[in-house]
Design a protein around this nucleic acid. Structure first.
Lengths: 131, 131
DNA sequence: CTAAACGCTCACATTGATGTCAGGGGCAAG
DNA sequence: CTTGCCCCTGACATCAATGTGAGCGTTTAG
């Protein structure tokens, strides 16, 4: 398939797909006239890239983890493994951070509901002191 | 305390603290000469702002949730509540996304370790097909 | 009083993924 | 051949939070 179809199938813009290739995240075979051609593997690959980007990884990080254009080698694999473990830790602590933010938000929601339940027009007085 | 102390106590740069004020996330009392002064509540507040920003909220979203400069009113509170619930859902789905990315990463790590354990120099051939 | 350390505003720079526009070519159907 | 739709590259624009630096006032310690 060409880039337009890959784009509609993955929901990722043509622009972004070319960008991924530019960053070494995605390879494509080119037709004689230079048009990019893809297969089913590329669809999965793009989905994975999206998942990683959405999780806050930078494209260069993803590129370092993915032996995508370079020769596979023990050295490279060990390097990738280091980065993967670093990123895994980052994702875990990002989840913790989001969980903390969500719980703080829950307190705010509760306070706000209490405020709305009251009849007097009192200060909710939000400073975060209640968390 | 003045801005420098708030900065060191929260780990947030002076620049960012002024930016927060600019965006309506933080209020400060000013000395006659225009210098910002803060108290303990501001420390908590800044920490909360940081938690929200780190969780991927935009400053305008935080501003909408926080009746910080505006008069508290039922209308405002209801509006804030709507946004808070929207954001809560966003945070939850962000956590799901990160969890999915982390699990994909775990597969990659495992594959990579298998590759490194082998003695032959075989293709790891990563396309994401294994997830 | 002076100097160091701090604060103020204004304004321009940066980063990363993506949008958008321009100018030009590729390819199938009528 | 022309029409229409797809593709190519390249370049500039965007957003959001933050960095950085200039130019100038303030507070504090000696």
């Amino acid at each position: 398939m060409r880039i337009g179809e890959l784009s509609t199938r993955t929901g990722v813009s043509r622009r972004s797909l070319r960008y991924y290739e530019d960053q070494g995240l995605l390879v494509s075979s080119r037709s004689p006239s230079g048009q990019r051609h893809y297969d089913e593997d590329h669809v999965r690959r793009v989905r994975l890239i999206q998942a990683f980007l959405a999780a806050g990884m930078s494209s260069s990080t993803i590129a370092e983890m993915a032996p995508c254009m370079a020769e596979p080698s023990r050295h490279r694999a060990r390097r990738a493994l280091t980065i993967m473990n670093r990123e895994r830790a980052r994702l875990s602590s990002a989840m913790d951070g989001i969980a903390a933010a969500r719980s703080a938000l829950d307190h705010l929601i509760e306070d706000n509901q209490k405020y709305l339940a009251k009849d007097t027009d009192d200060e909710p007085g939000w400073t975060g002191a209640e968390g």
